[in-house]
Design a binder for these strands. Structure first.
Lengths: 177, 177
DNA sequence: TGACTCATGTAAGAAGTTACATGATTCT
DNA sequence: AGAATCATGTAACTTCTTACATGAGTCA
């Protein structure tokens, strides 16, 4: 892939997992070439440069997966904001959540579209994308459910002093395949 | 709260939403004081400094919520890794997912514990935390479901060239409260 | 008295964002 | 011919992480 292609991958299947802009991607590609983890294997019109991963590059990925500890925390600005929702009057807070709800729905639908349009004959490495897109779809659907719960709680006065203790709605247990 | 208190809040109820270390928090508190958004309203042993939000600070939060566009994308390193899972042999990939599964379970249980131990008589701004902890609980439970789906797909040979097209398991529609 | 927790800070470097900057090709 | 898209890069700045650095209070 080229830097341009990668920018599109990040803005589509990886946007809900790890965003990256072209200004970050191009210098990183240069670094990877310098370190021998990728190499330029083609070109095209308008100065297009196509890169491929080298055996050392594959080793580096394996080493990353095997030797480093995953970080299970996430970073979600749209949720962080709701930590501060007490600063708005109740009716405005509810309107705020309704706007979020529409956005989550839009994102979920976009993910479903992407899943439907995936080229399944593509190479194995591109199939990894299927896992992260499924994740994105489920994530945004989960946000929808959570927003509905939050709206109910706030309508009931949860963010008012002396308001009721929220009802903890237990989601269904994980399905066992 | 003090910087030390805030560090704990970030490592508990906010860790699944927006991580921050003390080395980021202390300079930021100094900046907020300089800008008049918070002020020191108490102290304690060992140089402890307690800050409170000022009316200008509340205005700044309201302004943030009202005037800036939320970013609905998330950043999840543990999911990004799975984008590269094709680089491992199938049995190792499955073992990898099993490890993740245990971690997600652990995180979900931790969130449930936090919910159970929340002091509900605390002030309104601390109640906002209840929303993000619920989000974290649901997030990790969702990851569990997703991991189970991914394991089934990979066991069926999804990451092998020519392997089967994955079955898209439709999650239940959002509940309407 | 020794270990642990509480408590605050700084510094260097890495990572990420926003804006600047340019130009070729394709499509209508 | 003009607009849109393809395509690559750099620069300045902000944010974030990791490591360094210090010391007081508490508890066994």
């Amino acid at each position: 892939m080229s830097g341009y292609d990668l920018t599109k991958v990040f803005s589509l299947s990886l946007d809900n997992v790890w965003p990256a802009q072209h200004s970050q991607i191009y210098p990183e590609l240069a670094r990877l070439v310098r370190d021998g983890l990728i190499s330029q294997t083609g070109d095209g019109p308008r100065g297009r440069k196509v890169y491929s991963i080298t055996p050392q590059g594959i080793d580096a990925i394996r080493n990353w997966l095997r030797e480093t500890e995953p970080d299970y925390a996430i970073r979600a600005e749209s949720i962080l904001r709701l930590f501060c929702l007490w600063a708005l009057p109740t009716d405005e807070a509810l309107a705020y959540l309704e706007r979020d709800r529409i956005e989550y729905q839009r994102h979920a639908e976009e993910m479903a579209l992407q899943i439907a349009s995936l080229d399944w004959s593509a190479n194995v490495s591109q199939r990894g994308a299927r896992l992260t897109i499924e994740f994105g779809y489920r994530y945004y659907r989960g946000c929808l459910d959570w927003i509905d719960w939050a709206k109910t709680q706030i309508e009931a006065g949860m963010l008012r002093a002396g308001g009721p203790m929220p009802v903890f709605i237990e989601p269904p247990p994980p399905s066992l395949h």
